[in-house]
Structure formats: C-alpha cells, structure tokens
Design a protein around this nucleic acid. Sequence first.
DNA 1: GATGATTTGTACGTATGTATA
DNA 2: ATATACATACGTACAAATCAT
Lengths: 239, 239
Amino acid sequence: MKTRPSRGEDNSLIKEAGSRRKLTRAEEVRTRLADDIVDGKLSPGMPLDETEIAASYGVSRTPLREAIRDLAAMGLVETRPHRSAIVTRPSPEHLRQMFHVMAELEALCASLAAASMTLSERRNLETIHEGLAQILKENDPSHYHVLNEKFHAAIYAGSHNAYLVEITLATRRRLSPFRRAQFLTTGRLAKSYKEHDAILVAILQGNRELAADTMRSHILTVEDSYEEYAGLKAPSVSL
Amino acid sequence: MKTRPSRGEDNSLIKEAGSRRKLTRAEEVRTRLADDIVDGKLSPGMPLDETEIAASYGVSRTPLREAIRDLAAMGLVETRPHRSAIVTRPSPEHLRQMFHVMAELEALCASLAAASMTLSERRNLETIHEGLAQILKENDPSHYHVLNEKFHAAIYAGSHNAYLVEITLATRRRLSPFRRAQFLTTGRLAKSYKEHDAILVAILQGNRELAADTMRSHILTVEDSYEEYAGLKAPSVSL
DNA sequence: GATGATTTGTACGTATGTATA
DNA sequence: ATATACATACGTACAAATCAT
C-alpha cells in the first residue's frame, strides 16, 4: 500500500512546507518577496514597482500582482489603489501593540501545550531544547536562530489548535523584520536559553499558568531588547 | 479650515468603512462576495466559477481573481491551483478551535478594555448596552444583531490595540457564517443581554480578570449554542 | 494648475494543468 | 490509459489614475 502522492495540496498563505508540486509563478514570486522582506533585504517603506520587479523575476505583472496582494493580506506590504505597494513600516506604537499581542498568543500556545502536549511532543521539545544548549556552548548565533524557531513552533503545534497556530505564525512572520538576528550578543543568547528552560519546565510539569507567564515574559523581553535598538535601521534580536 | 478630503485611504482587508473614494472593481467584487459569504448567500463548499461570477458581476476575470485571492487570505474561501475556489467549509473540529481562539481574543480585548477604556468610551459602551435593553424589550432580533456587533466592537476598540482589533475582527468575520442569526430564540436573546451586563459591569469596575472571564464564557456559550444546531445547514446564533 | 510621463487597473486571448469519458 | 473538455494561470494590450515637471 503506497501513500497518495498528494499533489495539489493547499494554497494557504501560512503553510508552505512540504508538497513538492509545481508552484505557480505567483507562489514562487510571493515566497521570494516574503523572504526578502522578512530577511530585511527589502527595507520597510521601500516601494515595489510592479513592472520593475516583474522584469527582474522574469514573470509578467499578472502573477506578480497576485503575489503582492497576498503579501498585503499577510501585512508584509501596504497597498493603496493606483499607488505602488510599499514594504510595511509600522509605527513604533503599532509595533509595540503587535509585540504585546504576540506575547499573549504565545502565552496561550504555551498554556494549551502544557495541558495537552503528547508524550512524543514533549520529548521532541526537550530534544530541540538540548540542541539549543549545544549551539549555545559553541556560540553559533545563526544556527541558534533556526532551532529557536523550531522550539517555538513545537510549542505552537503542542496547543493542538490549528487556527491558533495559524495566527501566531502569521504574527511572528509579520514581526520578523523587526527582530532580525544578524548579530546577536552572546548575553542575549544565554538569557534566551534560560528563559526557554523555564518555559520547558513549566510545560513538562503541565503547569498552564506558569507556562503562559514564562512565555509571555520571554516574548516581552524580546520586545524590550528591540526597544533598546529602536532607531537603528536593522534592529536585531532573536526570540 | 477644511478637513482633507482624504482620498486614497487604505486598501486594508479589514476596515472597509468610510472613505467615499471610487473603489476599484476588485474591491467592489470582494466586498460583495465577502458579504454574500458572511450572510450565508453563498454556502460553505460552494465552488466559485470565475467566468460565471465575472460575467454576473459585469467585470472581467482579472479583478475577480484578485478579489477571490483576498477572500482566500481572509479565510473565507479556499483555493488550490488550477481548481475553482470554494467557500470555506471548516471541519467541526476546526470550527471549535476557532471559537476557542475567538473566546480568548475577546477575553483579552475585554481585559485590556477594563484597564484602559477612556471615560467617553465607557459611556459609549453603556449607551450601546442600554440600546440593547430597549431592543430586547421590543423583542427585535434583527436590530439586536447590529447593535450587538457594536457592543463587541466598542470593547475591541477599548483595548487600544489596533493589531488585536484587526485579528479579532478578522476571526469574527470568519466565524460569521457559522453563527448567523436570522431567527433567534428570545431565550438566547435575554441570556446574551445578561451576559453583556456582567461584562459591562466588570469593565466599568476596571476588573480585568472578571472582564476576561465573563467575556470568555459569553463567547463559549455562543459556541455551545452553535453546537446544538450543528448539522443544520444554517446554524444561527448571535453573540 | 495644467500637461506629459509613468505606473497601476482591467480586459482578453492563449497556454497549461485538471477532471472526466 | 488516452484523449477530450473545461477551468484556471499567465502574458499582453490598453485604459485610467497618479506623479513630476
């Protein structure tokens, strides 16, 4: 019995993993643009000229416009009729509000995860955490980042609430340009790890309130770190 | 001194109020389709034929496709490459998860509102609530619905967090097709009002926890009401 | 403030992938 | 399984709005 090839998966804006089907041009362009924005290659405020970008990507304006529309829905760009889309540049106040919501969403994830993660999910989270310890020892910020994402994603998934995962990931991506971690102080790295440790313990204990509280303060700490950098063009912190 | 005409407002997917500028065809079509889905004129699972709808709306397929893409981003329709978009039909489980998140989002709004609503905002909320009492006396379900929306919206706004308002409204809209209130039992109407009353008191007292708790159970009550109706093709409850 | 240049919005035809006989 | 029918994906041309001078 062979598993279905599962072609033509889904076209959701949030999950782009898996599914090796041929992507539409719009999807390809959307992914590239989203990555460029999240990675900071396109700075907030920068206008996106349709003709120019379409040409540089080797596609017509039609799929490019669809991609831009998706990015607008994700909040990565802002569009106004008859005007060029621009990379979103939220006000400091709006950014603070988003961080606040992010903290609450992640706290809710952690709380639910503490209540309902399966044994294998818990083990997986522990494994990721141990990997982070390893990376910390070797002081390797770039690898820390990717595993850090996995740590948080594992907790999201542990909430067993697909919609919560969806909006939490969406919020995280939207905040990405403002917590980029190109260069990371070792101090923050170690602190982040310790905070993760407290979160992990709370979740493994099944202590919902503690899980929520430790996660919330973890995220808000990140916001504080960002605030310190406010004004710099490339603020850089990793959750 | 005359105020600016404010042309070319914004193209955000969430706020469509105000702004009397000439809309693009894509915007017009998007609004119409979104309303039809939210109001249940287009049932979950129904396919959206581009050619057919474009013709019926008197536009070409180009703006229609952009509208559909926006609806997909809002979660109102689901799209897969080379296949017709269909009106979203979430599984009962997914629906439950969304209600759960909705309860938490509204609870957070209520909590923040209790902490930071201004005096005039509180007075406005009271006025809306009194209006609901009036409508209840006259037993007028249809008017109850619109004022009920205002009651909740006023609390969202009272959170003073634009991003929270955005995702809460988006979630609310996404759930709209599944809590439509065409015909409302008077029993539910009166119960809803009593719950509102408890929420209002908690907010006016500035009691964050109580505001959150009363709001959360208010929303979850609605979900329960929905569950009772599950299986019917047009479940109908009003928050 | 008017006019030309530039850019976005829309229509439509063709290519491509999907579903069905 | 192959072919046929059909709906969507994309490219191109033109209209309309914005902006730059």
